[in-house]
C-alpha cells in the first residue's frame, strides 16, 4: 500500500527517472495505491482503452458524424506539428499513436472535444511511459523497436493519464475556455501583488496578460521551456494533484518575473515579441528549480492569506 500523500511530498522536488512511470501513474490516481489490486486494475484499463480505439477510431469515416470528421482532421493536422524540434516525434508511428490517443480522448470528452494544444500535453506522458521500454536519450529512440502490444500498453497509459490530468481542468478546454481566462486573471493579480513596478509597466504599455499567458495555461508551459526539462516540471504538477490549477498561477508568476528587470525596459511590441519567444533555450534544471522554489514561497505567502490579494 503506497501512501499517496507522502509520495506527493517526495515527488514535488523531482522524481528519479527510473521511478517516474510508476509514480506518475500513482499520483494521477490511474494506478491504485494498493499493490495487490494494481496489476488487475491496469490490465482492465488497458483493455478498455483498446476497446475504445476499435469502437471509435478504427472505423470508416462513413460511420462518423461531420463534427467527428472535422475533429479527426484537426488532430491529423496537429500531430505532425507536435514538439517538432524533438525528432522522435517526427516518426510516423509516433504520430499515429498520438492521433489515436487524442481522438479517443476527444470522443469520450464531448464537452470540450479536441482543442489545439492538448496534443502537446500527451508528449510528457509518451516519453515517460516509453522510457520503460526504450533506453538512452529520446533522440536515439525508434518506436518501431517495440511490439504492437507494448505500444498499445503505452498508449493506454498515456490516454488514462491525460484523462486524469484534464479531469482537474475541465473548463480549461470548453467553449471560450473560462477556466484559463479565470487563471489568467488571477495571474495578473498575483503579479501585481508581487512585483508592482512590472505590473504597472505592463499596464501602461497596454499589454494584456491574455496575450501571452493564454498559451502558457493552454499548453502548461511545454511551448516555453526546453523539452528535456518538461518531465521534471511535470513531477511538481502531478504532485500538486487537485491543487494544480491554483498552483500554476504561482509557477507562471515566478516564470514571468524571472525577467522582471528586462520586462520593464520594453515597450508594448517588444514585450509581446519577447514573451512569445522567451530566451529559455539554454535553460538547465537550475533555472527551472529556481522558478519552482520561488513559486512555492509565494504560494505559501499569498495563498494562505487571501487578503493579500484582496485589494
Amino acid at each position: 500500500m503506497v501512501c499517496v500523500e507522502k509520495l506527493r511530498e517526495l515527488a514535488w522536488s523531482g522524481i528519479p527517472p527510473y521511478m517516474r512511470p510508476d509514480v506518475w501513474r500513482l499520483l494521477l490516481g490511474y494506478a491504485p495505491p494498493n499493490s495487490d489490486r494494481r496489476g488487475g486494475v491496469l490490465k482492465r484499463k488497458r483493455l478498455e482503452y483498446l476497446d475504445c480505439v476499435s469502437q471509435y477510431y478504427d472505423i470508416p469515416d462513413t460511420e462518423r458524424s461531420d463534427d467527428e470528421i472535422n475533429m479527426l482532421r484537426q488532430i491529423a493536422v496537429d500531430c505532425p506539428r507536435t514538439v517538432p524540434d524533438v525528432s522522435f516525434f517526427q516518426q510516423a508511428q509516433v504520430q499515429k499513436s498520438l492521433e489515436r490517443i487524442l481522438y479517443t480522448w476527444a470522443i469520450r470528452h464531448p464537452a470540450s472535444g479536441y482543442v489545439q494544444g492538448i496534443n502537446d500535453l500527451v508528449t510528457p506522458f509518451l516519453v515517460v511511459f516509453l522510457s520503460e521500454y526504450l533506453e538512452g536519450s529520446v533522440d536515439s529512440w525508434s518506436i518501431s523497436d517495440l511490439s504492437p502490444d507494448k505500444i498499445s500498453i503505452i498508449e493506454a497509459d498515456c490516454y488514462w493519464c491525460l484523462s486524469k490530468l484534464l479531469d482537474g481542468m475541465q473548463d480549461h478546454y470548453t467553449f471560450a475556455q473560462p477556466g484559463i481566462q479565470r487563471l489568467v486573471f488571477k495571474l495578473k493579480e498575483v503579479v501585481r501583488r508581487i512585483d508592482e513596478p512590472v505590473s504597472t509597466h505592463m499596464e501602461e504599455q497596454g499589454l494584456e496578460f491574455l496575450q501571452f499567458a493564454f498559451r502558457w495555461f493552454n499548453c502548461l508551459l511545454i511551448r516555453e521551456i526546453p523539452f528535456h526539462l518538461i518531465t521534471r516540471l511535470w513531477d511538481t504538477y502531478l504532485a500538486e494533484g487537485d491543487a494544480l490549477p491554483d498552483f500554476l498561477v504561482y509557477i507562471f508568476a515566478s516564470f514571468l518575473l524571472t525577467w522582471s528587470d528586462k520586462l520593464q525596459k520594453l515597450d508594448f511590441q517588444e514585450l509581446v515579441m519577447f514573451l512569445q519567444h522567451l530566451p529559455t533555450n539554454n535553460w538547465t534544471h537550475q533555472e527551472l528549480e529556481m522558478v519552482l522554489s520561488r513559486a512555492f514561497m509565494w504560494h505559501s505567502m499569498f495563498n494562505s492569506s487571501p487578503s493579500h490579494l484582496a485589494n
Binding site: T82, D85, G117, F214
Partner: peptide
C-alpha cells in the same frame, strides 16, 4: 516545415 500550431494569437511587425 516544422512549425507548431498557433495557440491563441501571436504577433509580429
Amino acid at each position: 516545415l516544422e512549425s507548431k500550431s498557433t495557440i491563441g494569437v501571436e504577433f509580429a511587425t
